[in-house]
Design a binder for these strands. Structure first.
Length: 608
DNA sequence: CTAGGGTTAG
């Protein structure tokens, strides 16, 4: 059967449409069920406001507005011209007083408020509906949950959840899924999880929502576990599901998990979807497999601005700032996508990686209304390139003296250039700006230690303790044959600990330890538990231990280590030496970038 | 053929 056009289908109904349906209301009165579709049809074509007004007038005359189907159609039409308040006027006159009424007009108006990003109005309306004694249906409750999610109000979330339970909708898939999402947005992962676990029948949306929530919360293992459980339960993942789980693979270092999901994508034929491809590229970038990422990127038929952003950031993360800048220029040249502020930020980041000051300045000048993120990156670029005077002038010019992110960016340059003098000043400023951020005190303590101001170090230590703050522990991990080995600073708990220390000592030698060990660390100021690190045995930093295990415990092509904080200069130097002596590739991932250490050199060019 | 739930970068 040939599908009918809307017009044809309308003509098949109880009456025939005259040439201008709204100019001549057919007589006798059409059955009320035809009317909403008539209005909808008109609004799907190019609707005019006067047409809606005329319909409204006719409907009033014919007393059709007490029918919620008609009222909602009209509300939707008015919404398109004059927004939710216009729809609300129709609603107020026709729907509110209907005590035995349908929840549909209420829900529709609520949805319209959500479209205008007024979640509070949306939620209050539904509360009012309940007070009016109207029984909510699943859509009404799902909409209320969505409003809570948007509001990020834990209190309202609990309230709506309670109502859903009371009305017996908490086992409904639609309501359940919305409530899961609501709890996730409001920050209560446990609640979300328990609703998910309690759902008698879960669909793809249930799985996707909760997997995404876990992954966003950093529970990568749990997210992956759930993904596998879903596949095992017989459900077939779709593009949404794989996109939700892929970020978990990217953050797990080895891309084994990622390849597993990649295989799944190929099997299900999901690989020709931009979002999925973007997620794949990002996963390979974060797994340290830049070649895979680039290959997929190159083969993408359709690339959106996000694709380019991911790849530009990817090259930067791997120390290939020049390539990243070229990529940005290629994107602008082919003109198929419109640059947004994020891709500009990525491009500035690329300039910063490669210390391309002039390019960065040119780029910055082309950003119409630079945001804080752009200013911070520009300041960081100047500082990283060693233009300290210019960097400070830039901060001054843009009134960024009280912007902690900007201070941190400048501090980063001081670190690379070992500018302790300016570094100390900025760090003190930073500690003043964020008195509760323990990292700042650790940083300061490190800087005072580099100047051997032990009194200040002691004082800071007491301050930290008195404020009830605890320095973040530094740790690193390595995955060998499906097992993750985690090391803390000076860790001796690993079964092969003795072998690790022995190997490190053998490789790095006594003289190196003495010359470089403390001397280099003194000039370093990185963000981790320095006090502990300074006092620990030589080469006892977590990343050293993880690399040591990788060298003696695995024959993999490259030793891949991840650290939760930045690598210190000492370890960076040592790792370079080890890559030269052993002839093996070492890849260290820190929160900022990858260090590909090969034959004594690092991809970051010692600018990290 | 009235209303509703999930994905990628930062």
């Amino acid at each position: 059967m040939i599908p009918m056009t809307p017009l044809q289908s309308l003509q098949c109904s109880s009456f025939t449409i005259p040439a201008h349906p709204f100019d001549q209301i057919p007589q006798p009165t059409p059955s009320s069920s035809s009317w909403p579709s008539l209005l909808l049809l008109r609004s799907r074509q190019i609707p005019t406001k006067s047409l809606t007004r005329q319909t409204h007038a006719q409907a009033l005359k014919l007393h059709l507005l007490s029918d919620p189907r008609f009222a909602t159609s009209l509300m939707e039409s008015y919404f398109r011209f004059d927004g939710a308040d216009a729809a609300s006027a129709v609603f107020d006159h026709n729907c509110q007083t209907n005590a035995n009424g349908s929840p549909v007009p209420w829900t529709l108006l609520s949805t319209l408020y959500l479209k205008e990003n007024k979640p509070s109005s949306a939620l209050q309306l539904l509360y009012k509906m309940l007070r009016s004694g109207i029984e909510p249906d699943s859509v009404a409750l799902a909409t209320a949950a969505k409003a809570c999610a948007r509001l990020r109000s834990l209190r309202d979330a609990r309230k709506v959840h309670k109502i859903a339970k009371m009305k017996g909708f908490d086992h409904d898939v639609l309501v359940g899924n919305s409530i899961i999402k609501m709890h996730l947005e409001c920050g209560s992962i446990n609640q979300a999880r328990s609703v998910f676990d309690g759902l008698p029948s879960k669909d793809l949306v249930s799985w996707t929502t909760v997997i995404n929530g876990l992954v966003r919360d950093g529970e990568f293992n749990e997210g992956l576990k759930l993904f596998r459980a879903m596949c095992a339960s017989g459900a077939t993942p779709d593009s949404f599901t794989v996109s939700a789980v892929l970020p978990a693979c990217g953050r797990m270092t080895a891309c084994k998990n990622g390849k597993e999901v990649h295989a799944q994508i190929v099997r299900q034929g999901l690989g020709k979807n931009v979002v999925v491809e973007n997620a794949l590229v990002a996963m390979y970038v974060k797994s340290g497999c830049l070649e895979y990422a680039s290959r997929i990127f190159q083969r993408m038929i359709f690339k959106d601005v996000i694709s380019w952003t991911i790849m530009i950031l990817g090259y930067s993360m791997h120390g290939r700032g020049e390539v990243a800048v070229e990529l940005f220029e290629e994107m602008e040249a082919n003109g198929r996508v419109i640059s947004d502020r994020t891709v500009y930020a990525a491009a500035l980041n690329a300039c910063s990686t490669a210390c391309l000051v002039d390019k960065g300045k040119g780029l910055f000048g082309r950003i119409r209304r630079p945001g804080v993120e752009h200013l911070v990156l520009m300041g960081g670029l100047l500082s990283r390139a060693g233009f300290f005077i210019e960097a400070r002038a830039f901060l001054e010019e843009h009134k960024l003296g009280r912007c902690s992110a900007a201070c941190r960016a400048v501090l980063d340059g001081c670190r690379s250039h070992r500018n302790v003098k300016l570094g100390k000043r900025v760090a003190e400023q930073l500690a003043e700006l964020e008195p509760l951020n323990v990292d700042n005190y650790v940083l300061l303590s490190n800087l005072y230690a580099s100047r051997e101001k032990w009194g200040m170090v002691r004082e800071l230590k007491e301050t930290i303790r008195d404020m009830g703050l605890k320095p973040n522990r530094a740790y690193a991990w390595i995955e060998i044959r499906n097992k993750v080995h985690v090391f803390g600073t000076g860790d001796v708990s690993h079964p092969r600990s003795e072998g690790i220390y022995w190997e490190l000592q053998r490789l790095l030698g006594k003289e190196m330890r003495e010359e470089q060990g403390y001397a280099a660390a003194r000039e370093d100021f990185s963000l981790h538990d320095v006090d502990e690190e300074r006092e620990c045995i030589p080469h006892g930093h977590s990343e050293m231990l993880a690399i040591g295990l990788g060298l003696i415990g695995s024959n993999a092509a490259a030793v891949r280590v991840t650290k939760n904080s930045r690598v210190c200069r000492d370890c960076h130097e040592a790792a370079k030496a080890m890559s030269r002596i052993t002839g093996r590739d070492i890849v260290v991932k820190d929160p900022e970038r990858f260090h590909h250490l090969n034959n004594g050199a690092c991809s970051c060019g010692d600018m990290w």
